[in-house]
Computed example of a mutant assay.
Amino acid sequence: MKLPVVIAAPMAGGATTPELVAAVNEGGGLGLLPAGYLSAAALAAAIGATGKLTDRPFGVNL
Score class of each variant (00 low, 15 high):
residue 1 M to P: 15
residue 1 M to C: 15
residue 2 K to I: 14
residue 2 K to L: 05
residue 3 L to T: 15
residue 3 L to K: 15
residue 3 L to A: 14
residue 4 P to V: 10
residue 5 V to T: 15
residue 5 V to I: 15
residue 5 V to D: 09
residue 5 V to G: 12
residue 7 I to D: 11
residue 7 I to G: 14
residue 7 I to H: 13
residue 8 A to H: 11
residue 9 A to H: 08
residue 9 A to R: 02
residue 10 P to I: 07
residue 10 P to M: 05
residue 10 P to G: 10
residue 11 M to H: 02
residue 12 A to C: 07
residue 13 G to H: 06
residue 14 G to Y: 06
residue 14 G to N: 01
residue 14 G to E: 01
residue 15 A to D: 06
residue 15 A to P: 01
residue 15 A to T: 14
residue 16 T to Y: 04
residue 18 P to R: 01
residue 18 P to L: 05
residue 19 E to P: 03
residue 19 E to V: 10
residue 19 E to G: 14
residue 20 L to G: 08
residue 20 L to D: 09
residue 21 V to S: 05
residue 21 V to N: 04
residue 22 A to Y: 07
residue 22 A to H: 03
residue 23 A to I: 08
residue 24 V to S: 00
residue 24 V to A: 06
residue 25 N to V: 07
residue 25 N to A: 06
residue 26 E to I: 12
residue 26 E to N: 10
residue 26 E to P: 12
residue 27 G to A: 02
residue 27 G to K: 13
residue 28 G to R: 02
residue 29 G to K: 00
residue 29 G to E: 08
residue 30 L to D: 00
residue 31 G to P: 05
residue 32 L to F: 07
residue 32 L to G: 12
residue 33 L to D: 01
residue 33 L to R: 01
residue 34 P to G: 12
residue 34 P to D: 08
residue 34 P to W: 04
residue 35 A to F: 01
residue 35 A to M: 08
residue 36 G to C: 14
residue 37 Y to P: 09
residue 37 Y to M: 14
residue 37 Y to S: 13
residue 38 L to P: 12
residue 39 S to P: 07
residue 42 A to H: 02
residue 43 L to T: 03
residue 44 A to Q: 00
residue 46 A to W: 11
residue 47 I to S: 06
residue 47 I to D: 13
residue 48 G to Q: 11
residue 49 A to T: 04
residue 50 T to M: 05
residue 51 G to A: 06
residue 51 G to C: 03
residue 51 G to W: 09
residue 51 G to F: 01
residue 52 K to C: 05
residue 53 L to V: 08
residue 53 L to H: 13
residue 53 L to G: 07
residue 54 T to M: 00
residue 55 D to H: 14
residue 55 D to E: 14
residue 56 R to H: 04
residue 58 F to M: 15
residue 58 F to P: 02
residue 58 F to K: 03
residue 60 V to F: 06
residue 61 N to P: 06
residue 61 N to W: 04
residue 61 N to Q: 10
residue 62 L to R: 00
residue 62 L to I: 10
